[in-house]
Design a protein around this nucleic acid. Structure first.
Lengths: 339, 339
DNA sequence: ATGTGCGTTCGAAGCGTTTCGACGAAACGC
DNA sequence: GCGTTTCGTCGAAACGCTTCGAACGCACAT
């Protein structure tokens, strides 16, 4: 920076003002500085900048490391967030913190490396959120707690998604619809999508006046297969299933094969939350309510940076967004079978 | 840090030495400092540390943003890398740089934020690698260029994977085997796995003395379906296919349905590079040569940090690792059909 | 000529660490 | 009992920037 200043015949501080736009700089001076920077290939040192300005322009992405690893949806959160961060001239660091290990998270925030955080896979009651709030670190959420207050969040509207799924099926004439949810453990830890999708399904089915059945189901093929057989035994008129469980749905299709039912002729399936990349791999291609995952990741980052940049001024109104799922019709849903 | 020093009755610098182990500190003094740090909940400021020590303990993960987005395999690289970084007390930032946009990468490295980089999805001839080398930034690769020289890398051994796939099929009695590769564009840009798997397949088939056919194939269902029909028309005895293309393989199965062939009774399929999470979603569950993606991400980070920590001492021998794929038998491969 | 105000620019003081050279005290050999 | 080494500690100087208060020149009004 000294070299740039010397070359442009100005003081060190003038270069700084020119870079940050903190004070007015006359056009000729600015030009000289620009030129000097380019000629020297100068790039301001992010660390030194961060040290004095208290703005590191680094934000953290908090994601839990679940047993089963992450799917396509989560990957899209991450890439979306990373792209958005870069566009807004920020860096995104990954903090894969186990949920129980709050101590680690505490240490990480204490290091003063990041200006804020985006929290992924938020639970209805999430300790990480409490910790961040206490630490005074600005953050936004992908997902939301049961009491989000004035915290910025962007979430998938799984409740509406479930309603849309039911609407899609009732429009096709189905009058007895089941719902296969995530695992019981997801439900008990208060994983929002699990809870809210179930609500949406129930209401939509009641509003439509159709027979409906719900079931939690382990996140694996065998559980899906078993769940289907059970559901069918208790719901004799069942003609369609809404499934929010990418693994279980495979088991369901296996079970359908076993009893010789064809999809969608004899039975319809609608998946909630599968990305097209996954639903395209199924045969038949699944009808799915696809979440806008990448967009969600982007939003989370933008909300956070908006907040960071407004610091000092009066806080802007919290941004709280529910993104609808997009209905992508595959070949797994069709008109109800006529007996 | 001043508070800690005051509380422990030592000089500022003594606290620093105690934290970093840079100089010997007597046991009682160290204890006093430890205690003071805990009582005050003190955590050293990562930014200030980085500024003076020239070691930010931040490393970058470079991944291209391809059109089709990333799959499960890539996600596992990322999470593996993030976990490994955290374990070794480093931060991982995501740099999703478009391949053509080298300018951006140049700027990013110029900021002096990161100590080194892990490059994902390396091509046989990769401009990013040249740029990093010129910038003097230490880095390791997941994948490898055609001339890796003394650069650390960890790569999936797709060549061996292809051989294993052929071995698996010949052991089942197959004597006419096809290979469905990635898209022509992947081949022309010199994407390593595409090129090397083809080599491995060809050699293994020749060594085993079996009839073999190869084909590039667009990364989508329709292309896979078309490719199968074409392949079958020119290879009348074909009884099995090795596929390194998660999307195309779905099309192949559709095509098999169309001609009434069942998997694996009438025709065998082996996938290369599909993670179990994907192959479990296929029906029948695919036999796959699963890459150890998470391990690869971890390795990339460890290699880089090893190198960073050795700076100054003579450079350690380059670590260059090929990780074998793991054969996971599904239900898509079986004994050759007897006519 | 002298004062007033504005738009620009300057010098210097930090930001929270690491690290260098130096120093006091205890331990050693003779 | 005197140099000499070793161990543990200290004060102060960076690291590369931002930002504060002050000062400069210039046009304008007085």
């Amino acid at each position: 920076m000294i070299d740039v200043a010397r070359r442009a015949n100005v003081a060190l501080s003038t270069v700084s003002y020119a870079i940050n736009g903190t004070r007015a700089i006359s056009a000729p001076t600015r030009r000289r500085i620009q030129k000097a920077m380019e000629e020297l290939g100068y790039e301001p040192n992010a660390i030194a900048r961060g040290l004095v300005s208290k703005r590191t322009r680094i934000i953290a992405l908090l994601f839990p490391t679940p047993e089963r690893g992450m799917g396509v949806t989560e990957m899209e959160f991450v890439t979306g967030a990373a792209e958005a961060a870069l566009e807004r001239d920020h860096h995104l660091v990954l903090w894969p913190t186990e949920l129980r290990n709050l101590r680690q998270l505490d240490r990480l925030t204490g290091q003063g490396l990041v200006d804020g955080a985006v929290v992924m896979e938020v639970r209805l009651d999430d300790e990480r959120v409490d910790l961040l709030r206490q630490a005074g670190l600005p953050f936004s959420m992908i997902g939301r707690t049961s009491e989000p207050g004035s915290i910025n969040y962007a979430d998938i509207d799984f409740e509406q998604g479930a309603r849309d799924a039911v609407a899609h099926l009732t429009a096709l004439g189905h009058r007895s619809i089941g719902f296969l949810n995530h695992s019981p453990s997801a439900f008990t830890v208060g994983y929002g999508p699990t809870v809210r999708a179930a609500d949406g399904f129930r209401r939509a089915a009641m509003d439509a006046g159709v027979e409906h059945f719900e079931r939690l189901c382990g996140d694996n093929v065998a559980a899906g297969r078993a769940a289907f057989h059970e559901l069918r035994a208790m719901a004799l008129n069942l003609t369609a299933l809404v499934v929010m469980n990418d693994h279980a749905i495979v088991g369901v299709m296996d079970a359908l094969d076993e009893i010789g039912w064809r999809v969608p002729d004899d039975f319809s399936l609608v998946s909630i939350g599968s990305s097209t990349r996954v639903s395209e791999m199924m045969r038949p291609r699944l009808t799915t309510l696809e979440p806008q995952s990448s967009e969600l990741g982007r939003l989370g980052v933008h909300m956070l940076i908006d907040e960071l940049e407004f610091r000092g001024a009066e806080p802007p109104a919290p941004t709280q967004v529910l993104l609808p799922c997009r209905l992508v019709e595959g070949r797994s849903s069709g008109p109800v079978r006529q007996h």
